[in-house]
Design a protein around this nucleic acid. Structure first.
Lengths: 340, 340
DNA sequence: GCACGTTCTCAAAGCGCTTTGAAGGAGACC
DNA sequence: GGTCTCCTTCAAAGCGCTTTGAGAACGTGC
């Protein structure tokens, strides 16, 4: 059932039917009702390819997904998807994933932009001076960044959480409890979120007259194993930390394991605070000792990003507003004063 | 730069240019070379919307993604995506995710099929008599199932792992080691993979003259917490198991925690075998006691599914071949003979 | 009764590609 | 020289929608 058939069936022109269905004002209400009715009865749905060709609008949002033989997609991504679904499922908004060679995303961004398959894209885990953002800016393809870049000479729309604030607050708590040897097990140091977290932690320590020595920092891909290895290497040092800030719950699993293996207990020997992106399958309150966290739901961010992307597509939003969401510090059993 | 411009620039008709670029035989080699050259130099790329409208082919594959306020997307999904990327990134094959209300996927499948946005879809985690498979079969939209259904009266293409064989082998090992009280912590019992695993375990026990009592089975969503709760409730019983089969590494985390909390050690008090889908961020060899597993990479399956979907789209594959992949049993320190 | 807005509807021209059916040109064969 | 083929190329007709520019139809006001 296409427009032609439907309109001839109704004895109307394609124009009128199209306008009736798309809510244009110059159609008689009575006619509109008749058309809408017939469309529903016959299950008419405009062919998106045709509509796209005619309007240039795709009604889909895109994501360029870095992949590679030695590249693993981040498990956080499913949480983002859950959030996206929260908004998108009721708006018939689809997401197009375009896999890209991780060390050459530009080609794929150009392909996506040229193809006009999608009306807007979202960009995740930015780095300072992110070339993807500059490229999208230049190509004129609407986008929203999940996270922030630094050093770009133009404004762009984003949603980010207050990573610096979160780690500042967590660090400050530890300092207030008397800890002086505080370590940070962070994500990839090239990524802005990790830079901000380090900055927050550093500022917190400075507030207590302390420094965050390079020997107390680890920057690694966020796996259980890396959490374990990082913690172990920290604990081996002369100046083993009495408190650890950790950038992810998954790494915190490994940190727990290393502590247990070293015969150290939480929080008596070592205090532990991790960032919690709110996974449904791994909860901080279920750690052997309930884990203190800085908490912010990626899922909620995903829903908000979908919403803003949809708004940009339909012209309801423009400009380059940045949103920074506050992060909750949730104190549970894993922190205590410095051991005697 | 579109076809019209390119062809007038070359002094050729659109027909010839189109054919030259699409590899039709009736074009002079010399002409083809000229055309290809000019296309490359001017960065010409056919507009996919136009091509799609003309051919009806989208060059994209789809996935209807069940979502809902209380529905969480499975973390296994990113592994699938990594695998998909392994194949798709070099083939410019995009994936369209269409979020659906989890309790009414049919509507979305119909929308996707009608929209012709995608040439084929993949279906994951099927249940017996899966209505989605029946629907796709009826709609004539090409698809491949990741997993298997049961009870459908037609054949369909799928890729599955030998879940029954895997759990049979794992169970048999435990039986051979003398265990008589063996428990199964499984995924959602409605899903085929869980049914097959139970079947495998049951058959293994039967081989030793044993029965898998309902009281020794848990069917839950695969989270750390549910692993913990299931294990705890099993250990509380009169007839606490001396061995546990577990359907996921994530649940095995919780099982470990429950055992530790109960003061039981692996493998002296309880042997443990889990299914490992091969997450890069959580490895069985890094469990406190290296975990024995039945191993099968979801990522590899993702790549294979992308490949087969692409083949179906381009007409290289048809019919309804099912592939069943064997599963490795990897024995590590977490299994031992039955405690005295 | 006529000119003039309004309101509603329409034919036709795109959007950029693929594909059908046909035609021009060059050899080959008789 | 004429006819037949084969090889290349082409004009034009879709694909199914939106949108422009224009035309009926119908009051209204003078």
């Amino acid at each position: 059932m296409n427009l032609k058939q439907l309109s001839s069936m109704l004895g109307l022109s394609q124009t009128t039917v199209s306008r009736a269905l798309n809510g244009y004002p110059e159609v008689n209400e009575e006619t509109r009702r008749r058309v809408a009715d017939a469309a529903r009865r016959h299950g008419y749905r405009p062919n998106p390819s045709a509509r796209r060709l005619a309007t240039g609008k795709a009604g889909m949002i895109g994501y360029v997904m870095p992949t590679g033989a030695s590249v693993d997609i981040d498990p956080h991504f499913v949480e983002f998807l859950s959030g996206l679904g929260d908004y998108a499922r009721s708006h018939e908004l689809d997401l197009v994933l375009s896999p890209a060679e991780a060390d050459d995303e530009e080609t794929t961004y150009r392909r996506v932009a040229a193809a006009k398959n999608v009306d807007a894209v979202y960009v995740s885990v930015p780095v300072p001076n992110d070339p993807r953002i500059a490229l999208l800016h230049q190509l004129g393809l609407p986008f929203i960044v999940h996270g922030r870049s630094e050093g770009l000479d133009f404004a762009y729309p984003y949603i980010d959480i207050d990573n610096e604030g979160a780690f500042h607050e967590a660090g400050r708590l530890l300092v207030q409890l008397g800890h002086r040897r505080i370590a940070l097990i962070n994500g990839d140091e090239r990524q802005t979120f990790a830079i901000f977290r380090e900055r927050g932690a550093r500022r917190a320590l400075a507030g207590g007259g302390l420094e965050l020595a390079p020997s107390m920092i680890r920057s690694v891909q966020m796996t259980e194993e890396n959490g374990y290895l990082s913690a172990r290497s920290l604990l081996e040092g002369e100046q083993a930390p009495t408190a650890i800030l950790c950038s992810s719950l998954i790494m915190a699993l490994g940190v727990s394991r290393a502590l247990r293996e070293a015969g150290l207990s939480v929080p008596d020997d070592v205090s532990l605070i991790a960032h919690d992106d709110v996974f449904p399958w791994l909860k901080p309150e279920n750690f052997p000792v309930p884990l203190s966290t800085t908490r912010s739901s990626i899922r909620a961010a995903g829903a908000r990003i979908a919403e803003r992307l949809a708004a940009r597509i339909s012209g309801l939003e423009d400009g380059s507003r940045g949103e920074v969401w506050p992060v909750d510090l949730v104190v549970r059993g894993s922190v205590a004063g410095v051991p005697p």
